[in-house]
């Protein structure tokens, strides 16, 4: 079981809800992924169209937990206000805190992130900070009151996988008890498996499923990958080596003097 603040979940796959071909495909992908947590957001609602109401109805019917994000926020003030609004609408203290610092990479502004995390944690929020793999930033976030870290694998939507495996290993080694959720950049199930094999606790996937040729089948593939990666981490992998080591015993080999 994975413990995120006071909540325990079985699935180590979190799924985003954006960019699916249709609401029906989203719902089917959520079921195929076996996720227990989906991410959601807040956007301006038109009083005439009320498109958000239908979406919220669909998500509630899925019977999963929601993790609201502060996507699109570029300042501490925007992120904190959005978090307050999300807590009221979604009825959860959970917030995936995003403070974006640069638009081409959607790289987190880790200075603003840390400040916003401190404010929100003090107000009782359970903060899931979208951060880089920087060790010192991670320490500051934990000191600010975060009890989960969400380092990126690669820029959001890039599908490039884990760009800094060394950095993620370092985070895992330094914070053995802190849940690490890879947020962003995962492109294919093998990336997700790799993250879990490294000891990361979970992955959050959106674009790689939503924009796949068959999102429902891809959701199922990610579910398998995450389970395999976790099982491998628990089993304990061998250390890589530079030279061959025969797997068949050499004692008693024929035709040798």
């Amino acid at each position: 079981m994975l413990q995120l603040y006071e909540t325990r979940v079985s699935s180590r796959l979190l799924l985003g809800t954006a960019r699916y071909p249709s609401p029906a495909v989203l719902a089917e992908a959520v079921r195929a992924s076996r996720t227990e947590i989906v991410t959601v957001s807040l956007r301006r609602e038109s009083g005439a169209e009320r498109s958000g109401q239908a979406f919220w109805s669909l998500v509630r019917d899925l019977g999963v937990r929601v993790l609201p994000n502060t996507a699109g926020c570029h300042s501490v003030k925007e992120a904190v206000t959005t978090a307050h609004m999300a807590r009221e609408v979604f009825g959860t203290p959970w917030i995936k805190l995003e403070v974006i610092g640069e638009d081409d990479t959607l790289q987190p502004d880790v200075f603003g992130l840390t400040e916003a995390a401190r404010i929100l944690a003090a107000e009782g929020f359970e903060v899931f900070p979208y951060t880089t793999e920087d060790l010192v930033v991670a320490e500051r976030l934990l000191a600010a009151g975060c009890r989960v870290l969400m380092p990126w694998g690669a820029p959001i939507g890039s599908g490039r996988g884990l760009n800094n495996v060394f950095g993620l290993r370092t985070l895992r080694a330094h914070f053995p008890g802190v849940p690490l959720i890879i947020d962003a950049g995962v492109g294919v199930p093998s990336h997700a498996a790799q993250a879990l094999e490294l000891g990361c606790d979970a992955v959050l996937i959106n674009t790689a499923v939503a924009q796949a040729g068959n999102p429902v089948a891809m959701a199922a593939a990610f579910a398998q990958a995450v389970e395999a990666g976790r099982a491998a981490w628990e089993a304990g992998a061998i250390e890589p080596r530079d030279f061959a080591a025969p797997s068949t015993p050499v004692i008693g080999t024929a035709f040798r003097r």
Partner: peptide
């Protein structure tokens, strides 16, 4: 005034 509602998100 900002009026926000649930929306798809990643």
């Amino acid at each position: 005034v900002e009026v926000l509602a649930p929306m798809q998100g990643g």
